[in-house]
């Protein structure tokens, strides 16, 4: 049966230290809790979590969503640059290995979903620009790339360069994060119902989250 891979990229650079990263952790937990109660998600979703700061790392390799899945701890953050380009590159490398592409011989997996959470601009600008081009070229087709600009100073411009949806949280507190995750989990849920584009309408974001695109 076909799987629906979901890649979650989390900014672990220094500026996320404190409440922002704690809110991400709490949000991930609540996302996970709601997904393991959603029959559409359980039927097909596989989750992978990547972190990026000075370098991009795999925090959770692509794993089947189920109630035994344990989310790994995000290690303490240090002062470091935001290598978003590298993270996107790692995601694409994993994509090549992990996502079964459709061919004329056999159906592949459902097109993956990516969620990128960051509060700042990428530090590795050259690689970042290059990856935006790659993502736009459709070499790694995603059904949806959700960019989330988190925090009061977050910029949406970098995210707009590659994401299909960009949201930003005006104020960064646990409550707005939990609403964001709720929205994201509903989006997954719809995708795993294989909704085709024409009838595909995301639930509108809850208050405090604005859909930029």
């Amino acid at each position: 049966m076909r799987k629906l891979p979901v890649y979650i990229l989390i900014d672990t650079s220094g500026s996320m230290r404190g409440e922002p990263i704690e809110a991400v952790k709490a949000g991930l937990n609540s996302l996970f809790k709601s997904l393991i109660r959603d029959p559409h998600a359980l039927d097909s979703i596989y989750i992978s979590i990547l972190t990026f700061d000075r370098e991009a790392k795999i925090l959770l390799p692509l794993s089947e969503l189920n109630n035994n899945l344990v989310l790994p701890e995000i290690p303490p953050l240090e002062s470091s640059p935001t290598n978003l380009g590298e993270a996107l590159q790692l995601m694409c490398q994993l994509y090549s290995k992990e996502v079964k592409k459709s061919s004329l011989e056999a159906k592949g997996d459902w097109l993956p979903v990516a969620v990128i959470m960051t509060d700042g601009s990428p530090s590795d600008t050259m690689l970042f620009e290059q990856m935006c081009e790659t993502l736009k070229s459709n070499a790694y087709p995603f059904s949806r790339i959700i960019g989330c600009a988190a925090g009061p100073k977050a910029k949406t411009e970098p995210l707009k360069k590659f994401a299909t949806d960009v949201v930003f949280l005006e104020t960064m507190d646990s409550n707005s994060f939990s609403q964001f995750w709720q929205w994201v989990s509903q989006s997954f849920s719809r995708l795993s119902q294989n909704t085709s584009r024409e009838v595909d309408e995301l639930p509108p974001p809850p208050e405090e989250i604005k859909l930029v695109l």
Partner: peptide
């Protein structure tokens, strides 16, 4: 399992 296209949509 029948395949009609390599484009998911």
């Amino acid at each position: 399992s029948k395949v009609y296209s390599d484009d998911t949509e």
